[in-house]
Nucleic acid binder design. Structure first.
Lengths: 159, 159
DNA sequence: AAAGAAATGTTATACTATATCAATAGCAAT
DNA sequence: ATTGCTATTGATATAGTATAACATTTCTTT
């Protein structure tokens, strides 16, 4: 594991950095980070938490940019399929990717007390792929999520 | 990895065995495998595939035991929380557990061509837990799912 | 038998996601 | 610069997944 989302960080930098990175990746790969897609990514980065699609819609509505569900789901599909965001399956929620974001196999640590989700990377991707291969199964994508208590919440008695 | 769901097996034996095992576990732990819960488990074992809650409802309706969604969801909650079934997060579907079913950390291999889901067990549970612990995170439950092509489908050109 | 806990039946509704089709914008080649 | 093609957006409707709430029944313990 290399990096984690618990503890503080320079959020402004992390956000503009991630946006710049996304711009660059899109440039390089000939992808279009259109207004709607960028807006959804900005919201995810700004909020810095796992958000449901309808949470994102709410934020857009507050910003005066009312939109329909398909707008957000399309943007999320784009962001997720190109690695700019991830879907947290256990929460039906989406999280901006704050990693260097090449082709990675992330794992997520979900605190069920405070709802924080930390992204880190898989210490065992290779072993998983190799083990599956032995069974004749070819892995294309993986989901690894762990639920439990984050450092802040495990020391206390959270409500 | 110890066991896998690709390839054939003695389905009748697997089903009655799993039911007996569930009965025994319930007996031991003072749990009640009531009619509705047992019925849902039987359906999952019979169909031997990942089923949505409404798929299960459809089967119950065909059997003349029409029920409302909460009936199935409650049964599934019971079965999942006691390890008799698992939820496949990527599919919003449920699968009977066909393993010896002590306290295990399963991983699922999902074929996106034929929809088959194989349950096997985690080769890296310990490493994951230890790595998370280093970050101060205490894991309580894990979800590990891999999507790709099963042996049968990777050799062909499936539609 | 009575009391308390667990499970069920039922209605309604909340939450998550996609199909569909018309309209528009970006891009490449003549 | 127009034409034609493809990708994207807008908008309406609807499909699919899951739970809240509350009355009723069943089980278990006393």
């Amino acid at each position: 594991m290399s990096d984690v989302g618990f503890g503080s960080h320079d959020h402004t930098a992390c956000m503009s950095g991630a946006l710049d990175a996304a711009e660059n990746v899109c440039q390089t790969r000939g992808l279009r980070l259109t207004k709607g897609r960028r807006r959804v990514l900005e919201i995810l980065l700004m909020e810095h938490r796992a958000m449901g699609a309808y949470d994102i819609l709410d934020v857009m509505a507050l910003e005066g940019y009312a939109a329909q569900p398909p707008v957000v789901y399309r943007a999320l599909d784009f962001l997720v399929s190109h690695g700019f965001a991830h879907k947290i399956q256990k929460l039906n929620a989406y999280l901006a990717c704050t990693h260097p974001c090449g082709d990675h196999a992330p794992i997520f640590l979900i605190c069920h007390a405070c709802g924080t989700v930390a992204e880190t990377s898989m210490p065992m991707k290779a072993s998983l792929g190799a083990a599956a291969k032995q069974l004749g199964f070819t892995i294309e994508t993986t989901v690894v999520e762990a639920e439990g208590l984050c450092p802040a919440c495990s020391g206390e008695t959270p409500s």
